[in-house]
């Protein structure tokens, strides 16, 4: 709850700060992303966009986004046709180690949208929805960097990470406690301390929950898997009487 208040406060300070400055329509819209949220409404009543990025590597400063995939969840259901899928031109080379993971070769992205354009499209898809990602700090850091470059401020939407959610509501006995990276620090130091801990990986959790990943290491495939994990977490929380937005914020918001 504390984090939500901080985010809310920051959002309003930012709005004051930008009051008399030129902001693009997409950016201005994003500034209002928290307005409709009310902590004591059921979490299920909100829309969520579960997102996954494929990148050229793990360094936020030097690596670039290659593709963005996302599905929307409404009323707790993943809408199969309501998705976002775009390639991004990294305007740099793709290390072969990365190609080995996601199979995106330069030819596939050389005519794709630039990062700024892709981001704006994504922002339009995202709207005011709550953003969800698996190990969200990583994806958020990349998005925020592009955001800052093009709009001068960071993503204002509420962001939920599925990893701590899993830790707390799905498989508490299954995990050793993990240090939580809060949004305030995400990407600030240029480096995301990725947990190389296998038990937080998408594969591992999906496998444990019996969720099939349709296309591992594509933005859209991973996003769908993350969406199914999030869906499961939501259901678990409701069953435990923790179905309000505040519970979700406490358990997994960045």
């Amino acid at each position: 709850m504390f984090y939500f208040l901080v985010a809310w406060l920051q959002n309003h300070l930012l709005r004051l700060h930008l009051k008399n400055r030129p902001v693009s329509p997409v950016g201005r819209e994003n500034l209002r992303a928290l307005d409709h949220l009310s902590l004591f409404q059921p979490a299920r009543s909100y829309s969520y966009v579960v997102v996954d990025l494929e990148t050229t590597g793990l360094e936020v400063k030097t690596d670039r986004v290659l593709s963005i995939g996302a599905f929307r969840i409404k009323s707790g259901r993943i809408r199969m046709g309501d998705m976002f899928n775009i390639f991004v031109n990294p305007e740099r080379d793709i290390p072969s180690a990365a190609i080995k993971v996601h199979g995106i070769v330069p030819d596939m992205v050389k005519n794709a949208a630039t990062a700024g354009k892709a981001l704006d499209e994504f922002l339009m898809f995202l709207g005011h929805d709550i953003m969800v990602a698996h190990q969200a700090a990583f994806d958020l850091a990349f998005i925020n960097r592009i955001m800052s470059e093009h709009h001068g401020f960071e993503l204002q939407n509420m962001v939920v990470d599925t990893v701590p959610l899993c830790q707390q509501v799905i498989l508490p006995q299954f995990y050793t406690p993990m240090r939580r990276h809060k949004r305030l620090f995400a990407g600030r130091f240029g480096h995301i301390p990725m947990q190389k801990n296998d038990q937080h990986s998408l594969d591992h959790i999906a496998n444990h929950l019996g969720i099939q990943i349709y296309q591992r290491h594509t933005a859209l495939g991973d996003a769908l898997a993350a969406a199914m994990i999030f869906q499961r977490a939501l259901s678990r929380m409701e069953k435990a009487g923790q179905g309000k937005l505040v519970h979700l914020v406490n358990a997994g918001a960045l």
Partner: peptide, 11 residues
Amino acid sequence: IVSRAEIAFYP
């Protein structure tokens, strides 16, 4: 069909 379908989870 798929693009108009939804995925739901029921415990």
